[in-house]
Structures are given as C-alpha cells and as structure tokens.
Amino acid sequence: MKNEENNAAGMIRSVAPYLTLGIQIAAAVVLFLFVGKYADDVLGTKPWLMVAGIVVGFAGGMIHFFREVVALSNKEEHERITKN
C-alpha cells in the first residue's frame, strides 16, 4: 500500500466503493415503484401503493446510502490510523 493514490489504478481502487452509491438510490426507488405498481394492479388500489412504493424506496435508498457512507468513512479512518 505504498503511495497508492499516485497512479491511475490506485485512484480507481480508492474510488471504486463509491461508484455504485448514486445509482443505488435511484434503483431502490424504481424497484419499489414497480413493486407498488404491480400490487396496485393486483389489489385494485390505483395509484396509492405506487406512491407508497416511491416513498418507501426513497427512504430505503437513503438509509442504505447513509449506512454505506458511515461504514466506508469508518473503514477509511481505520486505514489512516493504522498506516501512520
């Protein structure tokens, strides 16, 4: 792990865990949107379950995002301490 950030490969390596964070939020919303839409079609409760799905998906996406960010920054802090 010597001067990791100075080459392109090291850069990709340090950035990689963050690459899928953004799409994860949107993917969660879209997933629950379609689940809600399907449930609407089955139960005949248009459009309410779809709206609920969007809310649940957004909340879940944000929870996942912040948990992941906290875990990653803890890990980075840990690595910084053990390196010095």
């Binding site: 950030e5 340090s14 950035v15 963050y18 964070l21 953004g22 799409i23 994860q24 939020i25 949107a26 993917a27 919303v29 879209v30 996406g61 995002f65 960010v69 990653l72 920054s73 980075e76 910084r80």
Partner: peptide, 25 residues
Amino acid sequence: AAGQVRTSMLIAAALIEGATFFALA
C-alpha cells in the same frame, strides 16, 4: 487533507448522481 476532501466530494457526487438517475428514470 486531500484524502478527506476526496471522500466528501465522492459522497456529495453520489448524491447528485442519485438525484439525476431519479430524473432520468
């Protein structure tokens, strides 16, 4: 402090990206 700056930049960029993907969806 480049390491910390990069981390917080990536987190904010991921939030922007998420909102954009939402709009694109």
